[in-house]
């Protein structure tokens, strides 16, 4: 079972009622798996005619209060941005998975992390954010699915999962665990047929004077609440470290090996791995910046998350960068070389 298929199964187990998708490498195993399994479960699977159709079907199905998911890869996610903005505006819970590939443009099918900006800044127009999570192992991706649906339902907001081609294609042993879900609010806003009750309306167009400003303030309050409660982050060996590496997703696995090797060579290195990319673990990074010579950010891009790290560090220490994009995957050796180079520089 590839990472893609494992995630798809986890989504089904997390109660995904409807899936809408359009194939694109490196995530085509997801719609293929869903095509087979959703029918067996008596749920909805639609292979759409385009990504635009998929995201708008997500809108329609989410408005009925069902658990809804779509998946795609970078160029397809770009096509969905209008719909994601509408989901955010209408405050509809939904889960969107981006198995990132090389860009810009149609790019290639190699793994990449170049959609960080798109995934953490909203992506579409208007003042909103998606809750954005980045798994680094197949097991974590599987465990994340119930959380993603819960977060979407709790905050009535789209949740984006940023994975990449490596995670989608790779295999490693996993276990499907049953975890108790969160206590979630009733979906009393859902369009379920209004016989015997007031009519519900789901929309993102608000023309009356002041109404949209109020909605924006409401959305902002919600986003602050998410920032306060939903940050997920992992760290190791940061207490005594001179240099701390920051990486997410598959890059964080490469960084972990490099940090272990650096420690063997007597370099005091540690790592921080943001799991929630939005909300970003600002405080964790700011706290670590206190007693540190420098940060090194490693990404499969030419520097996107580094902006958030710099905001978090607030000038307390230098922030260096190593990244490759367009299908290039940083190797353990390259990261280790960079750590060595920086540690020599900072010693002089």
């Amino acid at each position: 079972m590839s990472g893609n298929e494992a995630m798809a199964e986890a989504a089904i187990r997390a109660g995904c009622d409807a899936y809408f998708g359009y194939p694109i490498t490196p995530q085509s195993e997801i719609p293929a798996y869903m095509a087979r399994r959703m029918g067996q479960e008596n749920r909805v699977f639609v292979q759409c005619e385009s990504e635009l159709a998929a995201i708008n079907m997500v809108f329609g199905a989410a408005a009925t209060g069902k658990r809804v998911m779509t998946t795609s890869s970078s160029p397809g996610i770009s096509l969905m941005q209008e719909g994601i903005s509408y989901l955010a505006g209408a405050q509809l819970p939904s889960v969107i998975v981006n198995v990132m590939r090389g860009g810009p443009g149609l790019g290639n099918i190699a793994p990449s992390q170049s959609d960080y900006f798109q995934g953490t800044r909203g992506g579409g127009h208007g003042d909103y954010r998606t809750i954005t999570l980045a798994p680094s192992t197949v097991q974590e991706w599987v465990d994340m699915m119930p959380l993603a649906f819960d977060l979407a339902d709790q905050y009535c907001n789209p949740v984006m999962i940023l994975a990449d081609g490596i995670l989608g294609q790779m295999m490693e042993p996993i276990e499907f665990k049953t975890v108790p879900g969160r206590k979630l609010p009733q979906k009393d806003w859902a369009l379920t047929g209004c016989k015997g009750r007031e009519q519900n309306i789901v929309r993102s167009l608000w023309l009356a004077d002041g109404v949209l400003e109020d909605l924006n303030l409401k959305i902002q309050d919600k986003l602050r609440e998410i920032e306060e409660n939903e940050i997920i982050c992992e760290q190791s060996q940061t207490e005594d470290a001179d240099i701390v590496l920051v990486a997410y997703g598959v890059s964080a696995r490469i960084v972990r090996t490099a940090v272990d090797l650096a420690r063997e060579q007597g370099i005091k290195a540690g790592w921080i791995r943001p799991v929630s990319l939005w909300p970003f673990p600002m405080d964790v990074i700011n706290a670590a910046a206190q007693d540190l010579k420098m940060f090194l950010v490693v990404e499969m891009s030419h520097g996107q998350m580094i902006d958030d790290v710099k905001i978090a560090v607030a000038g307390k220490c230098p922030v260096a960068f190593f990244g490759r994009a367009g299908g290039g995957v940083p190797t353990v050796e390259q990261v280790l070389d960079k750590i060595r180079e920086l540690s020599i520089l900072s010693d002089n």
Partner: peptide, 9 residues
């Protein structure tokens, strides 16, 4: 446990 699944050498 295996951190990086990518092989260089």
């Amino acid at each position: 446990p295996i951190p990086s699944p990518v092989i260089t050498y």
